[in-house]
Amino acid sequence: MNAQKKKKTIKTIKIDVEKCNGCRACEVICSAFHSSPKYSSNNPAKARIHVICDAVRNIYVPVYAGEYTAAECMGRDKYVIDGKEYDECAFCRASCPSRDRFKEPDTGLPLKCDMCESDPDLKEPWCVQWCLADALTYEEREVEEEEEERPEELEVGLEALIDKYGLDNIVETLARLSEAKEE
């Protein structure tokens, strides 16, 4: 089997919490960019980045909205960094049922950072451009990924399903689905 190599651009925003000045300009410009029409309104509650601010403890953490998840985590983690305890879920990017972060305030629909995808492309996501404190910096890197990964992923996923439902069930279901597709 010949593994196909594929080029992929990884977009990264590096967050330096020490440099954050807590101004929340990132929230402002994010929500403005994602309003419709563009920039027509502004509402940090709809931003896909939030700065967790707790001045009394000198904690400033910008967090980006990640994937939506339907399920809550089983546990809640707490981090202690340099003697400062960060609240549970502080660093989590998920839009999840356990909290209202990264959801449209009116509809509850999940929000997710899209790196300000637009046509034409921006040189950097808006939040990075508006962060003059340089707490946010944008990095792009090219990686080559082997297509093989996909079957691997599939295998892992199928295994999880087999664990859960049993091999017979999965086979039956697959057979039924492929019949349905052929029809």
Partner: peptide, 29 residues
């Protein structure tokens, strides 16, 4: 001075978080 901080949507860092062990609140701005 522990950190220079800003007001809403402003890049100027005119304020600071001050920590002082002898204060009951320990920190203030």
């Amino acid at each position: 001075v522990e950190r220079l901080v800003s007001c809403f949507n402003c890049p100027m860092k005119c304020g600071a978080i001050i920590s002082h062990p002898e204060l009951p609140t320990h920190r203030y701005m």
